[in-house]
Design a protein around this nucleic acid. Sequence first.
DNA 1: TATAACATGTAACAAGTTACATGATTTC
DNA 2: GAAATCATGTAACTTGTTACATGTTATA
Lengths: 193, 193
Amino acid sequence: MDHTLLVLGLLKLQEMHGYQLSDLVERRLKYLTDLKKPTLYHILGKLESAGDVTKSASREGNRPERFTYRLTKSGTERFEQLLRQNLQDTHDTYFNDDIGMLFLSEIPAAEARVFLEQKRASIKERIEHTVDAVGKHSVGTPPYYTLRHHEMHLRTELDWLDELLAQMKKRAVREDILQCLGETNAKKTRKKK
Amino acid sequence: MDHTLLVLGLLKLQEMHGYQLSDLVERRLKYLTDLKKPTLYHILGKLESAGDVTKSASREGNRPERFTYRLTKSGTERFEQLLRQNLQDTHDTYFNDDIGMLFLSEIPAAEARVFLEQKRASIKERIEHTVDAVGKHSVGTPPYYTLRHHEMHLRTELDWLDELLAQMKKRAVREDILQCLGETNAKKTRKKK
DNA sequence: TATAACATGTAACAAGTTACATGATTTC
DNA sequence: GAAATCATGTAACTTGTTACATGTTATA
């Protein structure tokens, strides 16, 4: 994940201290990434030693000291470069669910159905939360678009599960995974080039 | 990613040597994960010292030695436990694209449109490849379901990009990202609990 | 005869996680 | 007076990546 880009981008919008950044990510952007506090502080430390951000201390009363991070010129350049890179790259997305699904025929069909139904219910719940969040944003803002993105993929997840469950009612999931995956034991068929 | 589950599962289907496993993953399952050879050998090493697989050497002629890995009883148990865990867990999926999208208004609209059009083209290509691959599998096999899953998400990606591009023609992407994300600078509104 | 495929790894590094450590202030 | 929130980090660990190292055999 492009955590460095995220941190640079947020600091470009506004200077912030670490906790504030972390809070923003954990509350408002948790559908985007799961950046943990120690990872964030680690990134901030690296950005600082690279000269992309500056750190200035301030204290209110007797509270712990706060360090406000501010983008430097080099940080702004770095941000723009990483942003263009991110927008140009094609990112593969992998679903951890698929790994389990690949071996679905290794457990009894009845048990599998229970798991899938549970998954379905939990996705339905998430969709509702996401729809609520989308409704709070006005069309045309970047957070709206990314939230909408998230919502669309959750709906696809639901559609896929429904397709799978419907087909499981008609036929069992077949067990010959390896054969389906093609020749693996036999000498590979040379690709005629 | 649940790479350990994947390796255990494949070895449960058939004993294999490292290169064979790696080849299978890279050729047939590259839509599922991007497991690299050194990572695979590392996982095999750990499984071996945990007693989940056994390693037996064999040699054909003067070729480099091959080590065939075979699941042990404890490995089979471990597999079943990890599989049930995977099927029950709700996995968050994050899209690296979203991080760039969040800052779309930080570059000129015309440039952004070019990037998005490129992304659209590359996704269209992938869909075609995936449809081809789906067609080669028969319905009811696990690889069919996971490939179909992949295809559906790619189509959603295309739909989303089209929605975004259509709206960008009507209105500019707004720049007030922080305001959209809510109060960050002001004292947080305490949630009334 | 060169390159692709077969076959296995190590070493150094980068990224990220979990648990721990510390201490103040505000709200219930 | 306890719990949540504010605020910052470190240390140890896990996971994964890139580059390197080595050598054989089959195909173009």
